[in-house]
């Protein structure tokens, strides 16, 4: 017999549940997780290698690398001395929260550390899949064209920061920096923008400052919640003592 079943559930409900679990884990450990998204060839991995070299020794960090095939990127990251876990998505065009959770079990990021999640190079699909990150950072290279934020609005809406990479090439290109920033702010008025070059290191200081600032707030949020928990434990212990005392009477 035919019957109707009203389901009314988000198709991505399961991914969102795994993402929420990852987010809780990051918050409890004071781990700043950043989801790095871009089209292929934007210089994401080169930028990451340079960033790791600059941070090494001062900030504990780890990397999750997402690619459809090969572990080339994880190998490039490991050459810097950083810990990296490669996820091959195979037929998938994006990372999902479950795969990130599995990679976290392998990596076990240190408390108060940075976790870079380098997503599959694709400006469409990764926008829809929450991984539990604190923020998405979109990398756009100046060889790609000013219209990308308008063509792929979901990604630029979802990102908190846009890194405009390969800025050392600007003298050789017809690329309007003011226009690309205006396009990005048209789809996301709150997006922050930094101009960088993974090749020459230009603009890296501002990016490193941004990272330090975000990490400091992730760590202080964790300390606040630890302080709140300790206070609650102390309250409960006091209650327990008075209960014991009243029982003894």
């Amino acid at each position: 017999m035919l019957r109707q079943v009203q389901v009314e559930r988000d198709i991505l409900a399961k991914n969102d549940a795994f993402a929420a679990a990852n987010r809780l884990r990051f918050e409890q450990d004071g781990v700043l997780a950043l989801n790095l998204v871009s089209s292929p060839g934007s210089g994401k991995t080169s930028l990451l290698v340079r960033t790791i070299a600059a941070l090494q020794g001062s900030v504990p960090l780890a990397v999750i690398e997402g690619d459809q095939q090969t572990s080339l990127d994880a190998e490039r990251i490991r050459e810097t001395g950083a810990r990296a876990e490669q996820i091959n998505t195979g037929k998938g065009c994006h990372l999902d929260a479950l795969r990130v959770q599995q990679a976290l079990d392998e990596l076990a990021p240190a408390p108060a550390s940075l976790l870079f999640i380098e997503n599959v190079g694709n400006l469409v699909c990764p926008a829809g899949f929450d991984l539990g990150e604190a923020a998405k950072v979109v990398i756009l290279s100046v060889t790609e064209g000013e219209d990308k934020p308008l063509k792929y609005p979901d990604m630029f809406r979802a990102a908190r920061l846009m890194l405009l990479n390969k800025c050392d090439l600007l003298p050789h290109l017809r690329f309007d920096v003011a226009q690309v920033i205006a396009n990005a702010r048209r789809v996301n008025p709150d997006i922050a923008v930094l101009q960088v070059s993974a090749e020459t290191g230009e603009g890296m200081d501002a990016w490193l400052d941004w990272l330090h600032g975000e990490l400091a707030s992730a760590v202080s949020r964790r300390e606040e919640s630890v302080t709140a928990l300790k206070k609650r434990v102390a309250e409960l212990e006091t209650q327990l003592l008075s209960l014991r005392a009243s029982l003894a009477e």
Partner: peptide, 10 residues
Amino acid sequence: ELRLKALEVE
């Protein structure tokens, strides 16, 4: 929206 709204089943 990306929702599974309903099913017809037997």
